[in-house]
Write a protein that binds this DNA or RNA. Structure first.
Lengths: 115, 115
DNA sequence: TTGGTTGTCAACCAATGGGTTGAATATTAT
DNA sequence: ATAATATTCAACCCATTGGTTGACAACCAA
């Protein structure tokens, strides 16, 4: 069995941004800054409830934060967590590179029977 | 309605890597290079069929390629498509930065009633 | 030819996900 | 007090997903 680094956080983060509506919401929030749920929802052909749920998903993985003032919930983007994904990509690429380097050394040293 | 850049490709890519098993498979492929389906599957507590399906998902989004020789299907990682995701992250961050810059200019120019 | 390997296809199942509608809860305005 | 606003909660529906098992197909070896 492989070690299976079962990084559930990363899975949930990637799943969160794998939805077009949620990515669009994030973009909106980055463009317009802090926004209320209703304001965000008004741009979509979808019920307020649906948007509310999407926001909750984003909130759960930390991609947005919420500040409730009276009956208004102010939502703000927080791109910090995106690093989780970026780091995974980086790591994967370096694993890939590493293999190529080792392969290259093997070629140079002939049959690899050294050490 | 917001423009809704419905980048289905990006959605499918992100969804593909949002699964732990598939991320693990990709890691394995980067470490070990070209591998057969059975070899990959042998590391998991899961049926060969399940792994076969996972590989097909990765294949469909271009994260792996397949070369069939006889009855052996040789699978190889191809990290090219990851750029799709990386670019989206980059774009999002630059949108965020842009707003901060504009905000900053507004502060400097007083109440923003210019132009 | 007979039989083991390698892998997919098809059908199924339980769980999850994205959407809906209809309350319910707070808060603000009249 | 009453009504409108802002938002979530709960229940539901249907499509998708991650897994299973059982055939099947193609290939290689005896």
């Amino acid at each position: 069995m492989v070690e299976y680094k079962r990084d559930e956080n990363l899975s949930r983060l990637l799943k969160a941004v794998s939805d077009t509506t949620r990515r669009s919401l994030l973009t909106q929030l980055c463009q317009q800054g802090v926004s209320r749920v209703t304001d965000l929802a008004s741009d979509y052909d979808m019920s307020l409830n649906a948007i509310s749920k999407h926001i909750k998903v984003l909130e759960k993985v930390g991609l947005v934060t919420r500040k409730t003032i009276g009956r208004s919930h102010w939502i703000e983007a927080n791109l910090e967590q995106i690093k989780l994904a970026e780091n995974w990509f980086k790591e994967l690429k370096s694993i890939w590179e590493l293999r190529l380097i080792k392969l290259d050394e093997l070629m140079k040293n002939g049959d690899g029977s050294n050490d």
